[in-house]
Amino acid sequence: MTNTVLKDQVCLTIPMDRDMELVAAKTGSVLAELNHFNEDQTEEIQLAIIETCINAFEHSQSEDRQVFIKYIVKADELECKITDHGVGFTAEDHHNRIINRQQIHTEMRKRGWGLEITMNLMDEFNIESGENGTTVSFIKRTAS
């Protein structure tokens, strides 16, 4: 079998509607499989995309109600850049969202995990956020 490595990028726009994060995750999954990521890595990529899209759906307050996803496929990695045109957020906003959620066991908080899950599962992670919106970027490598 010849290993064909994709060197390309794919752009996708999804509306902020129910289960649309699955469309973005599925696209990421196909690109990961084509680029020879294993099953676990492919699932990790899907989950990172889902969590980042859900964060945008829930918190961006964007007027266009759209999320823009760019998948950049390189020889041994897949990079995703997920952008919304919302109000942006600060680290303090994120912290406040987390501490405002009540639960019986303090370390087992219910919500506010999306960014941490994505950070933990991916090899590189970055957020750029301002008054014109937010872009979350992450990279998963086949060797990870």
Partner: peptide
């Protein structure tokens, strides 16, 4: 169940709390 998002997991936590 191939995929679980963090909202789904938060509901699992509620079940843990109810049993607790």
């Amino acid at each position: 169940t191939a995929l679980i998002n963090s909202i789904g997991i938060s509901i699992l936590i509620e079940i843990i709390e109810a049993l607790d």
